[in-house]
């Protein structure tokens, strides 16, 4: 079977502060890493590959040329092929435009049976790109998969974890799943594989390689939502000290819980 895994390079740290005087963002370094949830997407794909012999795992990402690094990492972990989608025309893409761009790329990698995404990224945190890709491809999706139970001829059995219950579902191929951590432990890149991929060149797709070449469907133009403003939050932990005798402080605590609708 053919599996496509979608991964993303994200900032290595979410520590971003705002200078209260100038409103300028202060970032902690510029290190980047693979979105942690994507590691589970990859691991899920590799486990299927280990069990079902003629499985091919292709890994894709959209981002700058430097995002090739996470694609290389995926090759060293267990992916067979890796592709980058990169074009200035994608700048300013929101969820819709991003999902559309990725769906266009996936169309070029046809045929596929299963697309696996992490449940969300740690930078955007929306969990929306996976489901939107599925809709653009016209295929079913299931989010928050914690386990693949069985791969069948025409579909897969998966387990998902919702707030108060677990479901066992069967999805027909082709389909998309987004995966949660579950019991997975992502493997590390292997030196052996790294050697095997020496000289492998990651193919880059740009707008001109896609079926739909209309730039107005991508990037800022193709994005219904726009960031109007970025601003610092109210001082997050503006600690309120509560002191006094035991009755006073306990009453305060009780009132806080009541006010916040917990009691």
């Amino acid at each position: 079977m053919n599996i496509i895994t979608c991964i993303k390079q994200v900032p290595g740290s979410s520590k971003v502060d705002v200078d209260p005087k100038t409103g300028v963002l202060i970032r902690d370094g510029s290190n980047v890493k693979m979105n942690p949830y994507d590691l589970y997407a990859l691991e899920t794909a590799y486990l299927i590959k280990e069990k079902y012999a003629d499985t091919i795992v292709k890994t894709i990402t959209m981002g700058p040329a430097s995002a090739k690094k996470v694609l290389e990492e995926s090759l060293y972990m267990g992916s067979d092929e890796a592709y980058l989608l990169s074009d200035r025309a994608f700048a300013g893409a929101d969820v819709l435009a991003t999902s559309y761009s990725i769906s266009q790329m996936i169309r070029k990698l046809h045929p596929y049976d299963l697309i696996i995404c992490g449940k969300q990224t740690t930078d955007g945190d929306t969990a929306q790109v996976g489901p939107e890709i599925a809709e653009f491809l016209g295929i079913p999706h299931v989010a928050y998969v914690t386990k693949i139970e069985e791969v069948q001829e025409d579909g897969i059995l998966v387990r998902t974890s919702m707030e108060d219950h677990e479901e066992q579902l069967k999805i027909s191929f082709p389909c998309l799943i987004t995966v949660d951590k579950g019991t997975l432990v992502p493997r590390l890149p292997s030196f052996h594989r790294k050697q095997r991929f020496t000289g492998y060149s990651i193919q880059t797709f740009s707008l001109k390689d896609l079926e739909d070449k209309d730039p107005s469907h991508y990037g800022l133009e193709g994005s219904p939502t726009q960031v109007e403003e970025i601003f610092p939050p109210n001082k997050k932990r503006d600690s309120i000290s509560i002191k006094g005798d035991k009755k006073t402080i306990t009453n305060s605590l009780f009132e806080i819980l009541k006010e916040k609708k917990y009691i």
Binding site: V95, L96, A134, E135, S223
Partner: peptide, 23 residues
């Protein structure tokens, strides 16, 4: 923004070709 809502709403946004802001 329940787990179901977070999986359902994006599907609709893509269908209707519109924006969706999470959480």
């Amino acid at each position: 923004g329940t787990l179901q809502g977070r999986s359902f709403a994006p599907r609709i946004a893509a269908r209707l070709q519109t924006g969706l802001t999470a959480d």
